[in-house]
Write a protein that binds this DNA or RNA. Sequence first.
DNA 1: ATATACCTACCAATTAGTAGGTAAGCAAAC
DNA 2: GTTTGCTTACCTACTAATTGGTAGGTATAT
Lengths: 183, 183
Amino acid sequence: MSTREEIIHLGDQLIRDKGFNAFSFYDISKKLKIKNASVHYHFPTKSDLGLSILDDHTKKLHELIEGTATKSPMVKLNAFLSIYTKIKSEGRVCLVGSLATDLNTVDPKMAKALKVFANEILEWVTSILQEGRTKKVFAFQESARTKALMIISNMLAALQLSRLTDEKDFYVIQQTVIKDLKS
Amino acid sequence: MSTREEIIHLGDQLIRDKGFNAFSFYDISKKLKIKNASVHYHFPTKSDLGLSILDDHTKKLHELIEGTATKSPMVKLNAFLSIYTKIKSEGRVCLVGSLATDLNTVDPKMAKALKVFANEILEWVTSILQEGRTKKVFAFQESARTKALMIISNMLAALQLSRLTDEKDFYVIQQTVIKDLKS
DNA sequence: ATATACCTACCAATTAGTAGGTAAGCAAAC
DNA sequence: GTTTGCTTACCTACTAATTGGTAGGTATAT
């Protein structure tokens, strides 16, 4: 992994660990054993880094969407839910949840990229649910978009809430989401 | 309102607006037209302020629980949901959601108080659902605690997610929660 | 010869927090 | 009834650390 990629990777972890306003370029430089100025060489401003992290997530989302395009709705849904399982196993929260609370403190370009990212997730999950209902794998009353909103908000908050109530509550919520869709 | 109360009120708004790590004692002193040192007179450290804000929320939660104790489950549920409606009207997120993402950056006493607060909400909503099911006002398959987790996570994330997708999505999620419980 | 990827050495602003002073109010002791 | 002591709620003035960011230099590879 190049230094640039390592900075993105580390920045991403820090954002989802502590929030955008609780990490500094020094945190990154310390960990990578390079100087603060070297981090600025790769990313002139903190916003540039934030944008690159968002770009990276967007790219990986596209890869996942394309990689599962021919699979069944259930496999696609599991691919979506696995994103959160992995985040939970690292003790972190998701990028959307972390940055949504920081929204009023980030620059407009970052806010825009975040909104695009969140909407792409919503569209993807909506299409999975739509397809699943057509194929009679999933059952739900609401519009596919509304159901997608419910599921995404359950998973997003499951990461945050289970930090406070019980770590197991993440899996309780996740399993309930799956069970509910199948009935 | 005393200065002390004004500081708590303002600190609370700032946390739910921008996050715990994105506001300073100077922000508060500026707004209240007193000096930074005067804020420190009331709250020696930022953690002291954070704790007082959590105490304030806990106290208000207790008042709401007691104030609705003799009411019907539907009235209680509406009281719970109204908390979020009010927060949404202010364009903010909830305290639990905001601080959950900052959890790894706050001191242990604050983290403890936050966990206590989150669990008290969970217990309250659980008891509302339990009572509602017994009285056949609500219908759901899961355990009352699990259903409470689902509803709380929907509402918590509705505030965050609707900042990114569409402001109206908050109400879409909220209405879906209500409709789902009644069916 | 130029771009890459680092470095040293800064800087200005912001941050949380402290030291020590003041002015007003209030209550008991002389 | 006024002096004394204590508390409250501010103030001025400061500090040490951290922060995001810059200027300009160096070594290496192409």
